[in-house]
Structures are given as structure tokens and as C-alpha cells.
Simulated scan of single mutants.
Amino acid sequence: MTVPSVPGVRLRRITVNGVGLNVATAGRGPAVLLLHGFPHTWRLWSEVIGPLARRYRVIAPDLRGFGDSERPAGGYDPGTLAADAAGLLEALGAGPAVVAGIDLGAPPAFLLAMRRPGLVRRLVLMESVLGDLPGAEEFLAGGPPWWFGFHAEPGLAETVLAGHEEAYIGWFLDRGTLGRGVRPDVRAEFVRAYTGTGALRAAFGAYRALPAGARQIREAVAGARLTVPALAIGAHPVGRALERQLRPYADRLAGHVIPDCGHIIPLDRPDALLGLWEPFLDTDEGRYGRPAGASALTRGVSPTPPSP
């Protein structure tokens, strides 16, 4: 199925690890796998899919339990989400790929690169923290964001929020763009995806799995190093916390903070994001992470039609 509001994108249903995932695909070339966070779906990448798809094969799933993917009872820990991502790349014959994750999508992207480095050509992590690894103390000085505990309490948040989803999701979208907001059609899709106690319960499963994720991340760095080239991108409010967490464990890491940018980087400052991505994705390793002067990944050009 094609998506009129995002030219060149085709939606597919792909079963991975027994779970049907809704997957947006576009373009041809080396693969780029995009993993969203909360409260997002694959449409988080609406502004960057087109430019990327002119040169790359873009794969943007709804994570299990999110959007139009199936909502199993469990498996929302980063390790299982990483296994889903690996299975998706294998099902599509798309590895090794550039893997990018933001917010809740960053820990599974990180674990995928640690556990299956042969599937990951380069790694981009954005606006997240990796469990309780050292380096995020300044960001967490006042404790984790308030909603972490609210979402983590079984049965609470989905009960309280039922009937108020639009206001709640809208708060995150406005806050995550420093008040600028997102396109009405994208906003409507996010609200639709998180409406109903079943949708909310599945989404909050990722927060209820945070302790398991922290253990998985500690175990990963205890036994190996991050060997693939990595790029950490921060904005408001995470800043350089993620970069500081990664620095002791990464062989090749570049870090950047995008100024005047909210947490939802791909929708708030897509051109700035593309400017950082371009030199990292496929040029010589000595340049990776530097902003491009005249980016070839510009918006406003329709992508190459996807392969059948």
C-alpha cells in the first residue's frame, strides 16, 4: 500500500519473531533502518524519508506494539526489539545497514550493533540514554523524566489516559519541538496510533521493560566494545549525555548537539539532521559526523519509487 502523504513510501506487513510489523519502505541502494520512539510511529521520519530514499533503501518499521504493528503481550525490552530489527533486515535481505534509533529506539539499535555487528554498517543514536551507564548524571540530576515512572506502573497510565489521548500525545509533540508543533497530518496519525487502552498498554510496555534493558546494556558493554562507526546526536533536553555514555565503549564515535532543536529531531530540525547524516552515511571514515556544506540530502524531491 502506498502512502499519499509521504510520496514514494510503501507500507508492507512483515512477520518477524512471530509478530506482524507494519513497515514503511522507500528507495533503492544501501539500507538505512530507522527505529522510532514514543509517542511516535514510522511517520516520525516523514520529513527525511524522501531525501534519504534518493540514495538509500529506507526501512522504517512501527516497533512491535506501536502504530499498526501487532501488540503481543511481551517482548518490549530492547534486546527483543533488537532481535526484531535483526529479523527484519534478514527478512528483507537488507544487511549490513545503517541503523538509526531515537528515544526508545536507541537502546535496541545499540544492542543490535553490539550483538550483531555484521548487520550494522554504521550506527546513529539520538536523544536517548542507555540504561544506567555512566555519563548521563547531569541530565538525570533531578531524576528521570516524570513520565518514566508514570508509564512504568502496570495498568495505571493507560487507565488514567483513556479518553484523553489527544491532549497527552499533543503535549509530547509540542514539548518535543520547543513549541513549534508538527504537521497536522502527522500529529493526527500519532494520536490515532496511541488511542485506546490496548494501544497505550503496548506502548508503555517499553517503559515497563526499562530495568531489563539496563541489565542488557550493562551485559553488552561488559563483554564487548562498539566497533562499528557511531554518531551520537543530541538536542534538547538530552544534549551530550548519550555521547558521554558511549565514549568509553565505542572505538569510533562522533558526537553533535543540534542547537535550537527539540527532542523530536527528525520533525523539528530535519534539514540539520540530514546535514549531519550525509557525511556520516557513506563517505570516508575520517569525515564522519561533520556537517555537510551543501547537502545532497535535501528535502522537496520525490524519492526513487520503491522496489516491488
Rank of each mutant, 00 (worst) to 15 (best):
E285S: 10
G176P: 00
R247K: 14
P107C: 07
R244G: 08
R54A: 14
A31V: 10
L226V: 07
E189M: 01
T80G: 01
R10H: 12
R201W: 09
G74V: 07
C261A: 14
R175P: 00
G29Q: 07
L246A: 06
V228S: 11
G95I: 07
A222N: 01
I14Q: 07
L104P: 02
A294E: 11
G300P: 02
Y168W: 15
G67C: 11
R299D: 11
W45E: 03
A136D: 08
W42L: 07
W277N: 00
P211K: 08
I265N: 01
H256I: 03
L161A: 13
H151R: 12
A31F: 11
A230H: 00
S46Y: 11
R12W: 00
G275D: 08
P279G: 06
H256L: 12
L297Y: 03
R13N: 13
F190K: 00
L156N: 07
R10A: 14
W146D: 15
G196L: 06
E90V: 09
V6I: 15
P72W: 13
P237K: 09
A250N: 04
V98G: 05
A272V: 00
A162L: 11
T197A: 15
W277R: 02
S46W: 05
V301I: 15
G170S: 07
V98C: 10
L104W: 10
G87E: 07
S46D: 14
R218Q: 15
R247Q: 15
D185V: 01
A230G: 06
G87S: 12
A212E: 15
R121G: 14
P270K: 08
A214Y: 07
R122S: 13
G18F: 12
P30C: 12
A83N: 09
G293Y: 01
G105S: 01
